[in-house]
């Protein structure tokens, strides 16, 4: 089974410590949500896992092979049509043109895009449609690890629900591991198996919350209740600035594991 382990991750920009002694574990089929106020280093962590940033210090071990990223904005290549954008990762993998076009068309249909949208350029698509293309581009390469950087934050409720459904399907059918960043606690509660709370200055893990309820049995009421419960946790309240208080910086000094009990 594929898994990812991170320990003692430190990252600095200049003299600022962005991440301090972060650690996490992620297993195939699991959905892990990173929550926290802005500036807590969530995105930096994601970029490091995606290989876009080299951290200052880390012990990282990963057996995931196919990794796909969905960024906060759709980030489509403006000079590529919908079909070519979806097939971008496939092209990089060397999939022949006809095959990748076929797969792109099938995915687009699954994402609720019309056949005529395939030939359109991003500027001709609405924001919601661009987000679907962006997700389709990630799913196209059949990743076993999917990194999501607040991909749903700018979408309307209906579209969000639909993309949630696509995501759940992917996790169930392919056993994909998902690491998602969100600042929306409710979204985290709805989708994740575990929630990690991060706080800034320096960016670190302060709290971990495990959700036992299977995805299929999560009703809206349950989501509301659980979110409300989570909102009562002291670390969460302080972390989001709802309560006054200090969260101590615990540096593990290598004999103890990260701040969250992994």
């Amino acid at each position: 089974m594929s898994e990812l382990h991170i320990r003692h991750l430190y990252h600095r920009y200049g003299v600022t410590e962005v991440l301090a002694d972060v650690g996490l574990d992620l297993y195939a089929g699991e959905t892990l949500a990173l929550v926290g106020p802005s500036g807590c280093g969530k995105s930096t962590l994601l970029h490091i896992i995606a290989g876009l940033l080299t951290p200052s210090e880390v012990v990282m071990q990963s057996t995931f092979r196919g990794l796909a990223c969905v960024f906060q904005e759709p980030r489509l290549m403006p000079w590529k049509t919908t079909a070519d954008n979806i097939a971008l990762g496939l092209k990089a993998l060397g999939v022949p043109k006809t095959a990748r076009q076929r797969q792109a068309a099938a995915l687009a249909q699954r994402m609720g895009l019309a056949p005529e949208d395939l030939a359109k350029y991003p500027h001709e698509l609405s924001g919601g449609m661009q987000s679907r293309v962006s997700l389709a581009r990630a799913l196209a390469i059949k990743p076993d690890l999917l990194l999501l950087d607040e991909p749903f934050s700018a979408l309307d409720i209906g579209l969000k629900a639909e993309l949630y459904r696509q995501l759940e399907e992917q996790v169930q059918q392919q056993g994909t591991a998902v690491l998602m960043i969100t600042h929306d606690l409710m979204e985290a509660v709805r989708l994740a198996d575990r929630i990690l709370m991060m706080v800034p200055d320096p960016g670190r893990m302060v709290y971990e919350f495990t959700l036992q309820q299977p995805q299929a049995e999560r009703s809206s009421t349950w989501v509301y209740q659980t979110t409300a419960e989570l909102m009562q946790v002291r670390e969460v309240r302080i972390g989001f600035g709802l309560d006054e208080g200090e969260l101590p910086v615990q540096i593990s000094h290598h004999e103890q594991h990260s701040g969250c009990s992994v």
Partner: peptide, 20 residues
């Protein structure tokens, strides 16, 4: 940002040139 996309999807250098 687009460069990040290209790197995240492991585009080979030739594709970096022609597609980005």
């Amino acid at each position: 940002k687009l460069k990040d996309v290209a790197l995240a999807y492991r585009l080979p250098w030739r594709m970096l040139l022609t597609d980005l």
